[in-house]
Each structure stands twice: as structure tokens, then as C-alpha cells.
């Protein structure tokens, strides 16, 4: 079996890759070992909510062929100088040379902390100082944060920079109503990755 210490939900954890025919046996051993520790089952929706809290991107929702790794904040995954190069390197270098990024993926959190706050699904407009500057790509109720959250791309011709994000009045439009929100580049949950590294 191969065990990877990686996570899509932002907690200490491992992903176990094993031959399909051994899954039942290993699964039952996990249940047994986990029972005294309060092991619970979690489904796809819980995973989805956790990954949005952690700002982890989902292919086809948050990243696709219209988004570059730089737009999506995934520049850390790019091995710029690897020998042999890679498909798309020239385009990425050109984007880098063209100055500050004009479109970036940001993390969104509604100010409404009540549990009647609207949920974000996708394509909800993101509004800065009354002007639509982008839209939500994926959203969820963040159960660990107790907030309605999402992520989406926003654009600014002068570059999407931290002070531009910090200075505006931000809202998300849901079903024709605008709701005040906060935006930032880093995830809302455990931004320093302390839980993952614990």
C-alpha cells in the first residue's frame, strides 16, 4: 500500500492507495481502530465544504483551461527552470513579464455570521464598490468557520493587489440581493497550515 501524507480537507491526515481487492479488509480495520477515537464517516459534501474553507481548488470549477496557475494562486507548483521545460511555459513567462496580475482567485466570506446567511453555489457576481468585478466559482457552508464562503476570480486593470482587495467595499450578489462580504488571497481556514503539519 502507498500512503501519501496529503489532504484535500486541510487536516492532519493520509491518503491510502491500495489494491481494490484489499479495500474492504483495510476499511474494516480502520473502523475498528477508529471506534475508540470517535471515527465518523464523512461524505463527498463534507469533503467539498472543507476544501472550500481551505481554499483548495477543484478542477473544472476553480481551474480550467481559461485559468493559469498564476491566476489561481498556484504559482508555487510551477517548476520554472526544469530542464526540458513544459507545455505552456512560454505563455506563463509572458504573463509574468506583463506586470501585476490583472485577474486572481480570491477567497470570499459573507459578513452575515447568522445561520440564515445565503449559500453561494457558483456564478454569483462579486461586487466592489458597486461594480461587478468577478464571480464565484465554488461555494459552501464552512462548518469549521460557521460562515458562508466561496471563491472566485476578480479582475482589475491595474492589477489585483492586496491593498486593492483591502480598500474596496465588497459584496456578493445572491438572487438579486447584494450581501456584504470580505475577500482575501489566503484561505480562511488554518492559513498557516499548522493543522496539516501537526
Amino acid at each position: 500500500m502507498r500512503a501519501s501524507r496529503i489532504t484535500y480537507v486541510g487536516e492532519l491526515g493520509w491518503e491510502l492507495y491500495l489494491p481494490a481487492e484489499h479495500c474492504l479488509d483495510v476499511y474494516e480495520q480502520l473502523l475498528e481502530a477508529g471506534a475508540p477515537l470517535g471515527l465518523a464517516h464523512a461524505g463527498y459534501h463534507a469533503m467539498g465544504a472543507c476544501r472550500v474553507e481551505k481554499g483548495y481548488k477543484h478542477w473544472s470549477h476553480d481551474i480550467g483551461d481559461e485559468d493559469t496557475p498564476l491566476d489561481a494562486g498556484l504559482g508555487f507548483t510551477v517548476a520554472w527552470d526544469k530542464p526540458g521545460g513544459f507545455v505552456g511555459r512560454d505563455a506563463l513567462l509572458a504573463q509574468k513579464a506583463a506586470g501585476p496580475l490583472r485577474r486572481r482567485l480570491v477567497q470570499v466570506m459573507l459578513e452575515d455570521a447568522s445561520d440564515t446567511a445565503p449559500l453561494l453555489y457558483h456564478e454569483e457576481p462579486i461586487v466592489r464598490d458597486g461594480v461587478i468585478v468577478g464571480s464565484i466559482r465554488s461555494g459552501a457552508w464552512g462548518h469549521r468557520l460557521g460562515r458562508s464562503i466561496g471563491m472566485g476570480y476578480v479582475s482589475c486593470d491595474d492589477g489585483v493587489a492586496a491593498d486593492w482587495l483591502a480598500s474596496g467595499r465588497w459584496e456578493v450578489e445572491v438572487a438579486c440581493r447584494r450581501h456584504p462580504c470580505r475577500v482575501q488571497l489566503q484561505p480562511w481556514y488554518d492559513p498557516r497550515n499548522e493543522r496539516i503539519r501537526s
Binding site: 481487492e21 484489499h22 479495500c23 474492504l24 479488509d25
Partner: peptide
């Protein structure tokens, strides 16, 4: 046992 199971095992 069980080590390897078919999907129909259960």
C-alpha cells in the same frame, strides 16, 4: 482473512 474481497463479498 479476509484479505482480498470481491465487490459482491458482502
Amino acid at each position: 482473512r479476509p484479505a482480498k474481497t470481491s465487490p459482491a463479498y458482502l
